[in-house]
Design a binder for these strands. Sequence first.
DNA 1: CCCCAACCGTA
DNA 2: GTACGGTTGGGGG
Length: 993
Amino acid sequence: MKNGDHLFLVDGSGFIFRAFHAIPPLNRKSDGLPVNAVSGFCNMLWKLLKDARNTDVGVTPTHFAVIFDYSSKTFRNDLYDLYKANRTAPPEDLIPQFGLIRHATRAFNLPCIEKEGYEADDLIATYSRLAEEAGADVTIVSSDKDLMQLVTGKVSMYDGMKDKQIAIPDVIEKWGVAPEKMIDLQALTGDSTDNIPGVPGIGPKTAAQLLAEYGDLDTLLSRAEEIKQVKRRENILASRELVLLSRQLVTLKNDTPLDVPLDDLILHPQDGPRLIAFLKAMEFNTLTRRVAEACDCDASAIEPAVVPVEWGAEAHGPDLDRGEAVAPSPDGGETAAEAAAVLMPTARPGEASPAGLARARAERFSGAVIDHSAYVTIRDLDTLDRWIADAREAGLVGFDTETTSLDPMQAELCGFSLAIADNRADPSGLTVRAAYVPLSHKTGVGDLLGGGLAEGQIPVRAALDRLKGLLEDRSVLKVAQNLKYDYLVMRQHGIVIVSYDDTMLMSYALDAGVTTHGMDTLSERWLGHKPIPYKDVCGSGKGAQTFDLVAIDRATAYAAEDADVTLRLWHVLKPRLAAERMTTVYERLERPLVPVLARMEERGITIDRQVLSRLSGELAQGAAAFEEEIYALAGERFNIGSPKQLGDILFGKMGLSGASKTKTGQWSTSAQVLEDLAAQGVPLARKIVDWRQLTKLKSTYTDALPGFVHPQTKRVHTSYALAATTTGRLSSSEPNLQNIPVRTAEGRKIRTAFVASPGRKLVSADYSQIELRVLAHVADIPQLRQAFADGIDIHAMTASEMFGVPVEGMPGEVRRRAKAINFGIIYGISAFGLANQLAIERSEAGEYIKKYFERFPGIKDYMDSTKAFAREHGYVETIFGRRAHYPEIRSSNPSVRAFNERAAINAPIQGSAADVIRRAMVKMEPALERAGLGARMLLQVHDELIFEIEDGEVDRAIPVIVDTMENASMPALAMKVPLKVDARAAHNWDEAH
DNA sequence: CCCCAACCGTA
DNA sequence: GTACGGTTGGGGG
């Protein structure tokens, strides 16, 4: 270090405490991790370093270090055992941030310095002295008065939070003494926060006055007798020894041993990608964007870093218990605004009870008058600011995005809309005003050169900066329809929506099985209003255009209406949750899954296109070979893929027996029928079955999957539907990754194409027999509970009970039949179905069922009582209270009724298992983070979760994953049967499964 | 171009 | 016998 250099020393530990208390703890990661101090720290570092690069502005560091306290025990404790003895433990939310700030420092490519037995202040004093001796200037980034003794002509301080420089005159102004007298002043006054004794009755003012009069502390003490004020004189004389001790304590040690030499503090260039990876992991979206701009990086191409979090001893994570107090929950947490908002509008007579309010709301909102001409197009920032301010004031806002694609991973934002219930104008909540903010609408429809940006739109960056403030404000409840979509779209712009409700999920929690949950359906059902069809705005089929090409007036009517309708739906559905006691289901099983699934979809999974392409060729060859043989056997060429043509050939032309008809009267050519024919010795039938298998694998998988590889991420991003099934299961589409083949060897080859990225493994963790375990729990069957407790083969046990065959040496066929019965039970067994499955007579199947019910009477009771419950209430419930509705269960049509009864028997079993894995998924990310693991959950396949995990982490991650899944029901519900999870790691999905 | 039936992949 | 989604063929407009 040389003359003219400039060393910045950041008091990291001091900053943590200051930032933690100064910045409100609103600033959490989406998983609930508090990062307010980290956020303040990163912003401050960025500001310091940014100015540093801009040589026109301020001072430019050549050397830089961030200094931390190593631990609470230092040499000062040897001097005075009560030193800092009154310190209490840091707040819980602060604990994980100590480690994170060190990670942040390293991500900024800065030295992170601490030394056992010394405080940060001593290290700062030492570096400061050395730098000054070398002729350099020093800036200590801190506002701590303990460091002011270090200020000289070459050494100044800088308060990073107040953006204020502290030089010699500033110290004198503040404390009345020059920096070199600060030690004496502190010794006299003491410091209650550090438990440093001083002279009673002497504060900074008196101390400064005394020092001005006597020059320094030693002189003061030697001439203390001269002090005129009796009390003050006596106190000083009595405290003499303590004051000298205090002086030792407050004197910073400027010759501490250093592990990192001064010259090593030289400022290195920023490592942009590394810093962005860290900032993304912290979800500091604004800063990520700024850094990406400054270093010209594409932030979207950078994976978030894996940042281990040390939580200390305290457990953390979203609690999933019923009735437990809801801590500020990671995402859609209940806020004061939300609690207030649900009561808005003001209750009227007859609305005091939740049910009364719900009824009144439904009544008031039905037959809504929706006036498209009242919608506003927001074209300038001032108007947008007013709307956002009004939304803040209301604490509640309807929100919707308009984009160019239904696929959120491909969608480009065109604009967004806001809806506000005007509570002042109309306390009924009925008056909703809504606006559309166009951002990137184009002109020149049909212009091949592409029209330019349409006039009268706010610049995207400016508008989104304002919107971000609203969407990330925990105190404003955002209401959206199918929020996962908007969540993903906004994430692409660095915005993380917090505090939200999703009307689609509210409807799903309330009415699964009654209705679908799309906005148009809900609007017609609850508001009696048919929203403008998307087709009317954008056209369809060949004439379709993207939303950015829609004229802004037309777009406003459509888009604002969506936000308007969504907010009205919320007013109807929200009170129903409480009235129908579905709030817990909604808040614990539905809403928190939105960001979890969004992240899974965003991560995607890698597929090896070469593997698929090779397989596709093999399948084509195999199918072609079959085709020739099929034509030869049939005696003519025909479309094998046409069941109609095939049926005509088999049962018309060839006159084969064993035909059955489909419900439309056509010949059935199902696999079952063909298998039967093959068994009769019809070789053509076998070849058709085999041909179908190959062409199915080719068309549905090997040919289709590569088309889903995202052009930028090069991964496949499925879409999970949260509200598609009656039972509570998820569904997956575009592509459906929940039906990737596994049962045949040929099919399994498809799974080898699903691979981990380099240096990682795929880990598959699946529940073993979860539905039978749920059945054992809900029906409380002693033998089943015992078998699961003992880890016995459940199907063999069933066979043994039914047929009196010992488990040892049981024939495979006997076990197979018992297995089919077990599955049949879960599916709401019928003699017809079981006979079909086992290819036995219906009477024989009936005997099996009778026998089963004799051995397990509890199952019969369960099925009967479930049916009776469903008939009485029209719905059934899972163990977590989710409801599946069967409105047709009282149908006078016996087959319709029987079908609904079977579904009603199945739903609590399938649905409870679905609830369990939902809980596991919500708990998984916090559990992994708590364990300091970067494992990433990618896929869910009903009873299986697939992760991508760094090689070195796999062995540590698996127990965390297994434990989280096995204990997913806790603490809300202790199951009577243990849940068992098997997990394996491999390069591809086939080997991991 | 849209919709439905048939078929088949998964849990 | 439960719960899904995707592909193909084919009919109707």
